[in-house]
């Protein structure tokens, strides 16, 4: 539709206005992290100042950011890989060799996700304590994999379902057996789907705060725990708080920006047809 100039200007202003509004807290966090502590709590807030990285240096010295970040990477990647390892065969058999119970199983798996983790917090906590898994990376990897399994299976299922059956049949006519079918056709065809499923799982793991807060203290603690420690009364150091927050969010934010197209594909859960 041809739009008048005013209409276009209005849409542009509205679109950018809302985008900036939603992004503003993140922008302000980054800005504050570059201020000095006194600058950070100046009223009215400083908009023009000389940026400094001193807060970042302080944070690293005091809390050893890098150790937490490493834990986050390790646990998120580990949890996602483990979840995919379980989910890929499950989703494959559900999509290509469905049984009358497939539909029920899928919905049941999804409904387990609605169960609040608090419901089972106590037994898991005690199990972990008794198994010596408290405050270990391995413990969190297992928890995260299990936590995301239903969603990962569901997403992969919708991707497998999108593969046209005729292509697999053409493969069979060309002489492909189960293994060549999976290796030459299914895997390349669903690789984008597997990738975006992994991406979502990675983001969910990175940002997960319930189990990490309750099951780790220091040794295996990821960035969510690192950040929570800044919410205590000493949190009035706004510049350091912002620096720590920025450092905790930056990797996954940049990662998310770069992979947003992939991610959107995966997030729709077959809802967009």
């Amino acid at each position: 539709m041809e739009r008048s100039l005013t209409q276009r200007a209005l849409i542009t202003a509205l679109g950018w206005g809302i985008a900036l509004l939603l992004f503003f807290p993140i922008f302000w966090m980054v800005l504050t992290s570059l201020k000095t502590e006194t600058g950070a709590i100046a009223t009215p807030p400083q908009l023009i100042f000389r940026p400094s990285l001193s807060s970042y240096i302080d944070v690293q010295e005091r809390a050893d950011y890098l150790r937490f970040a490493l834990n986050s990477v390790l646990i998120s990647v580990g949890g996602s890989v483990l979840a995919l390892a379980f989910a890929i065969p499950a989703a494959y058999s559900m999509a290509f060799h469905p049984s009358p119970r497939t539909r029920g199983t899928l919905l049941w798996m999804l409904s387990t996700k609605m169960l609040p983790p608090v419901g089972v917090l106590v037994p898991i906590y005690l199990l972990f304590r008794n198994a010596g898994l408290l405050d270990t990376q391995f413990g969190l990897i297992v928890i995260y994999a299990l936590m995301n399994l239903p969603i990962v299976v569901w997403m992969l299922f919708t991707f497998y379902k999108e593969v046209p059956n005729e292509i697999l049949e053409a493969g069979r006519m060309d002489g492909a057996r189960t293994w060549s079918e999976v290796w030459f056709l299914l895997l390349p065809l669903t690789l984008p789907g597997v990738a975006s499923t992994g991406l979502l799982s990675l983001i969910l793991c990175w940002n997960e705060a319930f189990w990490s807060l309750n099951l780790t203290s220091s040794g295996a603690a990821p960035l969510t725990t690192f950040i929570a420690s800044f919410s205590s009364p000493e949190g009035l150091f706004f510049a350091k708080l912002s620096a720590a927050s920025t450092a905790a969010v930056a990797p996954i934010l940049v990662f998310g920006w770069l992979s947003q197209r992939q991610l959107v594909r995966g997030l729709t859960f077959g809802a967009v047809k």
């Binding site: 005729e166 069979r172 006519m173 057996r177 056709l185």
Partner: peptide, 20 residues
């Protein structure tokens, strides 16, 4: 005998080309 071993070739209505 499975489709892979019958020695036949098929052209599908949707062509079913391997997109990758």
């Amino acid at each position: 005998v499975g489709p892979a071993d019958r020695g036949l070739a098929m052209v599908f209505q949707s062509y079913a080309l391997y997109p990758h």
